[in-house]
Amino acid sequence: MQIKIDKNDFYDGIQTVRKAISSKSTLPILSGILIKTQEEELKLVGTDLELGIECKVNANIIKDGSIVLPANYLANIIRELPNKELNLELKEDNKVEISCGSSEFKIHGSPADEYPLLPEVNSDTEYNLSQETFQKMIDRIKFATSDDESRPFLTGGLLSIDNKNLKLVATDSYRLAYTQLELENDLEKQEIIIPSKTLDELSKLLTSEDDIRLLIADNQILFEFSGIVIISRLIEGQFPNYKQVIPNNHETEVKLERKKLLNSAKRAALVARNNSNIIKTKFHDNKLIIESNAPEVGQAYEELSTSQQGDNTEIAFNANYLIDVLKVIDEEEILIELSGELSPGVIKEVDNDNYIHVIMPVRST
């Protein structure tokens, strides 16, 4: 194998597929990246057997071939090379010579036939969505997934397709994030759970205005976009009935500026860190008072103007949960719906039910 390739294009491709590589793998071959010529392009592949990422990079293919190179060493070397065209050539005994300008490296690789193939995803169920839209939906729910491996069905996001509605839902049992998109056509009903790592890496890679193509099989999902293919296993298990968690009514409705609430919550959280991140919120006659207290640190007090309908009430939240949702809402104003200090709080955008966030209250003394 021999290729000539732009250093920056090669490095970008390496960084893309490297996201699928786990440092915890017990199989040495999985710490590497598969490099393979394919027609007039160079194909790069990384996988941890749960998530696989493949991308294609333009290259001048002088001689076909394939090799597996250690991901970390390869990335570090390519990053430090001059911004020029580099030459990569496979020599005897799986050694690769990389030269760029006056720099030259020799790296020991592994045979490509030892590298596991990414599974094929064959399905009649295919969807096409805007990358920008899908990325925004992912970002609005992924932080609410759980890291509790004893309940794997909570460690991912539910993708639900029902008629013309595509929904993404995540919950860690302390909060729930729900977002939906109305599609143009009726589609086959589907409910699958996508691992949080897949959602995280997908969100980082979705940058184009072009569409993303989704293929769903029995236990795999494929995403194809911008010359990149991501194949991920799906999580088995039954996702909780999220509809039962979202309150149908409320006693208090408050409208206020999102950014002011976010900044106040951040400041109150500085003290709340020493008290399980608990902040108290009091909604009283068109005012919101936020307080936090840690005996060994001190107290914080914030006051905001609101537009309130319904009863005065108070409720305590985990400050981080409130901050997380306020960061992903774009609107200048939000709605908070409450039904007392022991009932969940609901945060929405004004005049828009396509995004709903539910936060469970915490007990405070």
Score class of each variant (00 low, 15 high):
L158T: 08
K243N: 15
N354H: 04
S276L: 11
E184T: 05
L118Q: 03
E332G: 10
L335W: 07
D93V: 08
S99K: 00
S160L: 15
K280P: 05
D148H: 13
S150N: 10
E39G: 00
N249L: 13
N8L: 14
S103N: 12
I67E: 03
D311S: 11
L158R: 02
E132L: 15
R267N: 00
R79W: 06
V358Y: 05
L261D: 12
I246D: 03
L256C: 14
A59C: 09
N76I: 06
E92Q: 08
E251D: 10
K197Q: 15
E89M: 07
A177H: 12
T252N: 05
H284S: 13
E89D: 09
Y11G: 05
A300M: 03
K91D: 01
E80R: 12
I35K: 00
V57W: 00
D48I: 06
E50I: 06
N83D: 03
P111N: 12
Y355T: 09
E209S: 08
N312L: 01
L338M: 02
Y178E: 14
K43G: 04
I61L: 01
Q38T: 01
I14E: 01
G156H: 09
P111F: 11
E85D: 15
K24Q: 14
L51S: 08
A59T: 02
D12Y: 08
F223G: 04
D124Q: 13
K167P: 10
L261S: 12
P119M: 05
I334T: 11
R267G: 06
K287P: 10
A268F: 00
L304Q: 13
I235T: 09
R175C: 15
K7V: 07
V68F: 07
D12A: 11
L304N: 14
N354Y: 04
I53A: 02
P361N: 15
Q15E: 06
I138Y: 01
K136T: 11
E201F: 03
N122P: 08
D6Y: 07
M137V: 15
N219A: 13
L154A: 11
I29D: 04
E126I: 03
L206S: 11
I35G: 02
Q238F: 05
K19G: 03
C55L: 02
G52A: 14
F153Y: 12
T365V: 10
T47L: 12
K4A: 11
P70I: 02
K4R: 13
F105S: 06
S22P: 08
I67P: 03
Q131D: 01
N293E: 10
Q299E: 03
I33G: 05
I329W: 13
E184K: 06
V358R: 05
C100G: 11
I329Y: 13
L202V: 10
L168E: 12
K260T: 15
N354K: 06
I67C: 01
L262Q: 10
Y242I: 07
I228R: 00
I231W: 08
L34Q: 04
I98S: 04
L30D: 09
E253K: 15
I14Q: 01
E54T: 00
N83P: 02
S160C: 15
I77Q: 04
E251K: 10
A71L: 03
R213N: 05
T26N: 14
I161C: 05
P82L: 07
L129Y: 08
K266D: 14
Y301K: 06
A300F: 03
